[in-house]
């Protein structure tokens, strides 16, 4: 049994370890190790294409995480008031949203957005009057952020709901009893108490959006995010530079996930 689990772990982590190891390869080929060097990290960070993709990814991830945590928190708080079958249905829908494969979300969002754009664009042209200079809706950062926000919002709802569930109902009543308006209660009692969950939701959404390839591949249009860049350069062969980028992305994601966990744990103690 022990041997078996050892094999499982080796199987899981060996490829990742190899990527990390070969990112320090002095040679130019991914497959044979010719001494230790950090030159590929320098190359990666000086590559303008990488930096552009990184910038796009960071901006998309930041806006996604911000929107998802605001919308998700409001939805979770709103859902608190719901009882009975309506609540069960909403809960189920949220869990399903998280479990739907990325490829389905990618295709569905693509089709939905294209359909909407096809309807909207002639309309906007008409309103604008000047058909040549009228703004057109198309795939790009906006659609990418929309798709990511939709998906990660469900994550935030689940995390915040769990936290709300642990709060005593009487805290809200005590606040109302002490003359706080419903908005005042939300600001002074509910929000501070769920803040750790909201922050954790933000970090998870950020990580998800930053790492996502599948959904981005469908809806990013001409935008290149870091995962899309990696994918397209791999087609020209795996270089130690890609390994270096992969290692850095992995490390950043890991740190964010751990921080999110720590925040949630600390929040539970109060």
């Amino acid at each position: 049994m022990r041997l078996y689990s050892l094999v499982v772990y080796v199987f899981l982590y060996a490829p990742i370890a190899i990527i990390a190891l070969f990112s320090f390869n002095a040679g130019r080929h991914a497959s044979d190790f010719q001494g230790f060097s950090i030159q590929w990290y320098g190359r990666a960070l000086n590559n303008p294409f990488v930096m552009d993709a990184l910038e796009t990814s960071l901006i998309v991830a930041f806006i996604t995480a911000t929107l998802a945590s605001i919308l998700g928190t409001l939805a979770a708080v709103g859902l608190q008031g719901l009882r009975g079958p309506a609540r069960a249905i909403f809960d189920a829908l949220i869990y399903i949203a998280v479990m739907i494969p990325g490829i389905v979300i990618g295709i569905a969002t693509l089709i939905a957005l294209v359909t909407v754009f096809d309807v909207m664009n002639p309309w906007i042209e008409n309103l604008w009057g000047d058909a040549d200079n009228a703004p057109t809706l198309s795939m790009g950062r906006g659609s990418l952020i929309a798709a990511h926000t939709m998906f990660t919002m469900a994550l935030v709802i689940i995390i915040v709901r769990a936290r709300l569930g642990t709060l005593e109902q009487s805290l809200g009543e005590a606040s109302a009893d002490l003359y706080a308006t419903p908005l005042g209660t939300f600001r002074q009692v509910t929000l501070p108490l769920i803040a750790p969950a909201v922050l954790a939701g933000f970090l998870l959404s950020f990580t998800f959006s930053f790492d996502d390839f599948i959904i981005a591949f469908f809806v990013a249009g001409s935008e290149t995010t870091l995962p899309i860049y990696i994918f397209s350069s791999i087609r020209r062969g795996v270089t130690p530079e890609i390994n270096a980028i992969g290692t850095m992305v992995m490390l950043a994601s890991l740190v964010l996930l751990i921080v999110a966990q720590l925040i949630l744990r600390r929040g539970d103690r109060t």
Binding site: E168, S170, L171, E173, A174, S175, A176, D177, L178, Y179, A180, T181, G184, Q188, V189, P192, L193, T270
Partner: peptide, 28 residues
């Protein structure tokens, strides 16, 4: 409730865990 000149002491106390004793008392 927030418009009534009435205050309640809850059975579970319902003190705000994120606030100090002073801030709890100052809340109203």
């Amino acid at each position: 409730p927030f418009r009534r000149p009435v205050n309640m002491v809850f059975q579970s106390y319902a003190l705000f865990p994120h606030l100090s004793v002073f801030d709890n008392v100052a809340y109203g």
